[in-house]
Amino acid sequence: MAIKDWIRERFFPHIWCPGCGHGMVLNALLHTFESLGISKNEIVMVSGIGCSSRISGYVDVHTLHTIHGRALAFATGVKMSRPDLNVIVPMGDGDALAIGGNHFIHSARRNININAIVMNNRVYGMTGGQYSPLSGYGTLATTAPFINIDHAFDISRLSMAAGATFVARTTTYHTKQMSELFKEAILHEGFSVVEVLTQCPTYFGRKNKAGNAVEMIKSFKNNTTQIGSKAKEQNPDLIERGIFLQKDLPEYSREYDKVIERAKTKKR
């Protein structure tokens, strides 16, 4: 199938600004689907609210565009009811970790087989540039006009501490790696988190003088490094990319089969 066959052309043009990274994530995701050889009918994409969440509507799979922060809770209902379906949840940083933070950690704790993709552009784009829990100390935003005194989450460490069994990070500069990580995540049996550092030149870039889209993408090349690289030893400020964690633990929707089995034989 051509990549084009995965999209709903009827609904284009998309809503994203020029230079936005979300389209690059969409592209990588479609390449992943293509390489996995899974059928469209076996994929459910559940998203919340924000620029990133609109990604679901453009893909020709079962798509559920829900309310702010709750995509993982909707996805849990889908997955529990139909464990055979691939459930993918693309989210923004605010959607996943501010309003949706509780659902995020509890989905990780259950180790339910859902693929969470966090498109981290460090800003609320759709509402016009407010600071998010990933903006970080010292940044500027429309709601932090002097300085942002909020510290940022480390999504990978948070996910691992909460119980996710596949945790990875990449950026929009590293599109090949992005596609590979998506593939690993989808094949993984359990809750997976792939964080994608992405650029919002319109709001984060402009407010923080981070340059235009190209300059922002290039910065991902310069300020990140592969996990465990020599470069990281020499420069601890570099952000690591790659797979932080990949381990096999019982998956929630399959574990529930044990509950059913015990209930039917009245074993406690």
């Binding site: 809770a73 909707f74 849990t76 889908v78 529990m80 009811s81 139909r82 509890h106």
Partner: peptide, 22 residues
């Protein structure tokens, strides 16, 4: 299937998701 969710918001969302699968 029975699931105890993390709060009532998640509970309401989960039943909507499950209902969509039939």
């Amino acid at each position: 299937k029975f699931i105890q969710m993390e709060d009532e918001i998640a509970s309401m969302c989960a039943i909507i998701g499950a209902s969509l699968t039939g």
